[in-house]
Design a protein around this nucleic acid. Structure first.
Lengths: 335, 335
DNA sequence: CTGTTAGCGCCTTCAA
DNA sequence: TTGAAGGCGCTAACAG
């Protein structure tokens, strides 16, 4: 139990005004004469008064808080996304309540916490949501925006990049450059993004009369992706191209192929990633990849969330942003 | 304005009990008969009732929230640190309020927000604090723990690794391996960690009769560090060793030296970093570095913060954890 | 413009 | 064990 803190009453007493005068003084649209305002501010300063956000939230019924659920903070892509989102909401005057979950973990208890926390909006970054919770959010008219994860439920908004066509591009590009044994390193079974990237990739191969040479799961995790790579390359003939469901894993593959198999990229094996994280552009990797428009995605998500929070009504939208192929040096060129 | 939500009164009415019965039912130490508890829970379930954390905080005067101020989320080291901290506090039943600041930015408005938010503790990750705010936190008996940043004020706790000796080791190790033109890539002028690492490094060189060959600022930023590297290596004779104030910048240096100067690591130039981020161990870098014990640091910080929050009294402590040199392949061996 | 008066949703004595 | 009653610190009508 904390010792009693300075309240607006204390300030009022010292300033010789009513408590509500103090309140007005600290709310943007309170009408107050310059004279009392000054008295109040002086008293407040003297006592070190600061309005109590919690009390304010209780009465205004608005916490100006959004909950962010994120997994995979070890992946630079999501660290960056979180950073941008944080900046955006901060600048709009919202506080961020951060919840970390494991990539495939269930979010049940976390969601429960969030619902009790009176957050006015929920942003899910690469985190899954169960239908009952999605339903509950809708019931309470708390807008939810998911980035890069889907839920089988129409009540929540979803922002993602065009995973299917990203995968499709990767597949057709590899074929067009003369590759024949294309392997895929998938992320998590539970991830919708991975599923779409895979589907697009397979469809592209199929449309050219090929099928996927081999497939492994790297769980969006660096070391797991290295293991996946090893599994892929232990049996001959090994793949002549690898498409990974994200850059993080693609780079894991590059590192492993070079260091453990003595293979050169792209002379011996071509590699394509997904995301376009900063590392992809580093000289060591020059990773050809599919760029997700992070900034646009965050901006879209923020816009949706902010809009719905302000209007107090839900208008779930599914937004799919175009990806852009980034050609660098990790794919062998035909001829 | 949100529509009225389900309150404990609604539940009480439906269950045919008093509101306080409902309250007791949802607080851990409320004494209630099994029968009423059941009635209440049933009613609560039916109405979708969840206790309002804000109201609870107001009356208990405890928000069970800690504010985390972090900069440099693009640096994997801090992304990781945040992830660990988040897990720790979550598992202790605390909520995290996240505030991002720019690496050298002032934290004035952010601190102001935090103070109003009624957070019970503040964790600063690579973020600076001005003395007046430190003082205010002390006045309000809000414990503050800073990780890897110092404030010239004894009221707050500080956890850091032994930056001085880390730098010292780097310096003496380079000398002992026969290097002669040791350069330093510093972080930010405002960063205490950088200052200590530098001091240790210089002292080590000095004690062997050397001085720093050249010094540049990389601002803990990848691209800035690349520029710093370029500046370091444009005038002949260039350094035969580079010590960077963190791995992030060390790797930027490696990338730049290889790609733009055609130099080999460690044959032509040796490089030492600081942190031991995951990347440092990747085959491409094999970066010799000074490991900061992240887990221990977070554990120590969490322990300090939790302890002080529980006891409600401040007992600021300065904890310096030992670093450990990690010898990999980025330093040329003597002989 | 200012003060008075009700609460926001909950916890917590205090009696019963 | 239960209910009644009084706030936590603040905002928002409402009169004056």
């Amino acid at each position: 139990m904390k010792r009693r803190s300075v309240t607006s009453y204390d300030v009022a007493r010292l300033a010789g005004v009513s408590q509500s005068a103090v309140s007005r003084c600290f709310s943007p649209k309170g009408s107050i004469s310059a004279k009392t305002r000054e008295k109040v501010l002086a008293a407040a300063r003297q006592l070190g008064y600061r309005p109590n956000t919690i009390a304010r939230s209780l009465i205004t019924r608005s916490s100006r808080t959004v909950a962010v659920v994120v997994s995979q903070l070890d992946n630079p892509f999501y660290a960056l996304t979180l950073a941008r989102a944080s900046r955006t909401f901060q600048s709009e005057g919202y506080h961020l309540l951060l919840f970390l979950v494991s990539a495939d973990g269930d979010t049940t208890d976390v969601m429960s916490e969030i619902l009790q926390s009176q957050a006015e909006g929920i942003l899910m970054l690469a985190a899954s949501l169960t239908t009952p919770f999605a339903q509950e959010c809708v019931d309470r008219s708390i807008p939810v925006v998911m980035i890069n994860r889907t839920v089988d439920f129409t009540g929540v908004s979803q922002v993602s990049s065009d995973n299917y066509h990203g995968g499709y591009w990767a597949g057709s590009y590899l074929v067009s450059q003369g590759h024949r044994r294309m392997a895929f390193i998938n992320g998590l079974v539970s991830s919708s993004t991975g599923a779409y990237r895979r589907r697009g990739f397979l469809d592209a191969l199929l449309s050219q009369g090929f099928s996927c040479w081999a497939e492994e799961y790297g769980e969006y995790h660096f070391d797991k992706a290295r293991e996946a790579t090893r599994r892929l390359f232990t049996k001959q003939p090994y793949p002549d191209a690898v498409f990974a469901a994200n850059d993080h894993m693609a780079i894991a593959a590059v590192e492993t192929l070079r260091a453990e198999f003595g293979l050169r990229i792209p002379e011996d094996v071509s590699v394509i990633g997904f995301d376009d994280t900063p590392l992809a552009a580093w000289p060591s990797y020059q990773l050809t990849t599919v760029r997700q428009p992070v900034e646009d995605m965050v901006a879209a998500a923020a816009e949706l969330l902010l809009g719905q929070m302000r209007e107090g009504k839900l208008s779930p939208v599914q937004r799919i942003l175009p990806v852009v192929p980034i050609l660098r040096g990790s794919v062998r060129q035909r001829g």
